[in-house]
Every structure is written in structure tokens, then in C-alpha cells.
């Protein structure tokens, strides 16, 4: 599959990717390298993994990172409750030490967490490691090990080697700098807010019944809103919420009713300061420009 085919396939799944992004995904697939996507929240980084899984017709395995993410949540854990029950049952049956131990530390009692699960699929899945910058440096280092070796060691079982190499997508919001080592292992793409044409295409592909005039107004309004001095800029998801709110209310023209526009801004502006900054006058000015 060459990169334009991939771009079309992604568009069919409802994801409009720019040339550079499509190329990055294409290279990540052909070279078998993890792809690191960086960009502001709400530009559709996470969605790429979902769409890619759909295009490749494979499973999506997601690991959401957070501060204090530990091995038991990311890799594997023993099913302790089952182990306990099993030991009790074995004791009733008169089964003894060695064989019980072998049985309860077998794969049957192993709970797979995302990383282990991803390398033990028969078909290569898409592994999404979301918001890697939220996890701490140690986890990053461990991840590097898994991503380069594609094997995980469980002391009781030995080393589990990957049955298939997952397609790895990492996303980062830039809350902290990632290590150079991780960056070097990955291909990199910076996802920015889409330009007017792309955003219009996204809106039309997601909200099928939208009128061309309203769509143009919505995209124009959101694009100029992003140029304002905001704490949290509205992303694509917010833009889509805004569109469906307007459609739900049966609005055909943004400039018609200032009160309704101000009320629907709740879908775009998510902090108090931003709401205060975008007064009715500002909103009307932006809407007027977009019309």
C-alpha cells in the first residue's frame, strides 16, 4: 500500500490526514518503527490509532499513561484471587507444594495488561500508548526496552517473545520533554490544527447533513477563535461538538442570534477565563468575519 492509498483509506474511515501525516503513518508501517505524534490536545492524535486499526482491520490495544503508572497496570499481573482459590482447592484435594506452585504460576493465571497483550496477538495489533509524557521517565525507559526488544520477562515464566510486532503509535501533549532516546527510536510527526480546507473536509465527513454555508461559517469561526488569546484552544472534537449543537438547535446562520451563539460557545471554550474573554461582541465580530 503506498501512502496515497493509505490516505484515501483513512479518509474512508472518516479521518482526513494531511500529506505529511499520511506519509509519517505510511513510513511507520513500512519501516516497522513506532510513530510519535505530538501536538496540542484535540487535534486528533488518538484518533489516528483508531482509524489505523480500522484500515488495517486489526485490533486496537490502548495504554493510557498517567503519573505513577506501574508495571502491574502496563505489563502484566498475576490473578491473585484465582491463585488463592486454587491453592485452597488444591489443599482440599490433597495436592502438594511443587505441582500447585507450577500450576498457579502458569499462563492460565496471568492477567495480560496492554503491553504484554500487544506482543502476544496472532495478528499485529495497533498499540496506542496515549499521552506518554504523563508517565514518568522510568516508565519511558522501560518502554524503550520493550519497543526495541519486543519481549517481556516474567520471572516465574521466563521470557515471553512477541508473536507479532505491534504497530506502535505514541502520543504526547508536550507537558514535559521526552527523552532523546525515545525520540530517536521513533518516527516523528507534529500534528497541528488543520487548515481551513482540511477542517471543512473533516466537518463534512463527520456531520453528513450539514449545509455548506453553515459548515463554512463554523470552520471560519473556530479557526479565527484559535487565533484569539485563549488558555485552551478549541480542538477538532470541540469543533464537531459545536457543529452538532448548532444543528441540534436548528441554527442555519451563525450571525442570526447572538444569545444562542453565546450559549453554544460552551462546547468550544472550556475555562472560565476563556468564557469571560470571548464576550458577545467578540463572538459576533468573529462570526461576522466568518460569514
Amino acid at each position: 500500500m503506498d501512502w496515497t492509498t493509505l490516505q484515501t483509506a483513512m479518509a474512508e474511515q472518516g479521518y482526513v490526514a494531511g500529506d505529511d501525516l499520511a506519509m509519517a503513518v505510511h513510513l511507520s508501517l513500512t519501516l516497522g518503527r513506532p510513530l510519535l505524534l505530538e501536538g496540542a490536545a484535540g487535534v486528533g492524535k488518538t484518533d489516528i490509532a483508531r482509524v489505523l486499526a480500522a484500515v488495517q482491520d486489526t485490533q486496537l490495544i490502548r495504554l493510557q499513561c498517567y503519573e505513577g503508572l506501574d508495571a502491574q497496570q502496563a505489563i502484566y499481573e498475576w490473578n491473585y484471587q484465582r491463585q488463592l482459590l486454587s491453592i485452597r482447592a488444591a489443599a482440599e484435594d490433597g495436592e502438594t507444594g511443587r505441582s500447585v506452585e507450577e500450576r498457579i504460576f502458569s499462563e492460565e493465571f496471568l492477567l495480560e495488561r496492554p503491553l504484554l497483550k500487544a506482543i502476544r496477538q496472532p495478528e499485529p495489533p495497533v498499540l496506542l500508548i496515549d499521552e506518554i509524557d504523563r508517565a514518568d521517565e522510568e516508565f519511558e525507559a522501560y518502554l524503550l526496552e520493550v519497543l526495541s526488544e519486543f519481549q517481556i520477562t516474567v520471572p516465574e515464566l521466563g521470557t515471553l517473545v512477541a508473536t507479532s510486532r505491534p504497530i506502535v503509535i505514541l502520543t504526547a501533549n508536550g507537558t514535559r520533554d521526552l527523552s532523546d532516546a525515545l525520540r530517536r527510536r521513533c518516527l516523528y510527526a507534529h500534528v497541528s490544527y488543520p487548515d481551513r480546507q482540511t477542517e471543512l473536509a473533516i466537518l463534512k465527513s463527520r456531520c453528513a447533513g450539514i449545509e455548506a454555508k453553515l459548515a463554512g461559517q463554523i470552520v471560519g469561526f473556530v479557526q479565527s477563535l484559535r487565533k484569539e488569546d485563549l488558555e485552551k484552544q478549541p480542538g477538532i472534537a470541540e469543533m464537531l461538538d459545536f457543529a452538532s449543537a448548532l444543528m441540534g438547535l436548528g441554527i442555519a446562520d451563525l450571525t442570526r442570534d447572538p444569545v444562542v451563539l453565546q450559549a453554544t460557545l460552551a462546547t468550544l471554550l472550556k475555562t472560565q477565563t476563556d468564557r469571560d474573554n470571548i464576550t458577545t461582541e467578540v463572538a459576533q465580530r468573529l462570526a461576522g468575519k466568518a460569514a
Partner: peptide, 17 residues
């Protein structure tokens, strides 16, 4: 195409891009 491909391989951060 070469530009897009090399950008993906050679860049590591938003500034590089």
C-alpha cells in the same frame, strides 16, 4: 514525497519540524 518522508525520519520535536 521525499520532503515529507525525511521530515518524519529526521525531526524529533516541534521546533525541528
Amino acid at each position: 514525497e521525499v520532503r515529507h518522508a525525511l521530515r518524519t525520519v529526521c525531526c524529533g520535536s516541534a521546533e525541528d519540524t
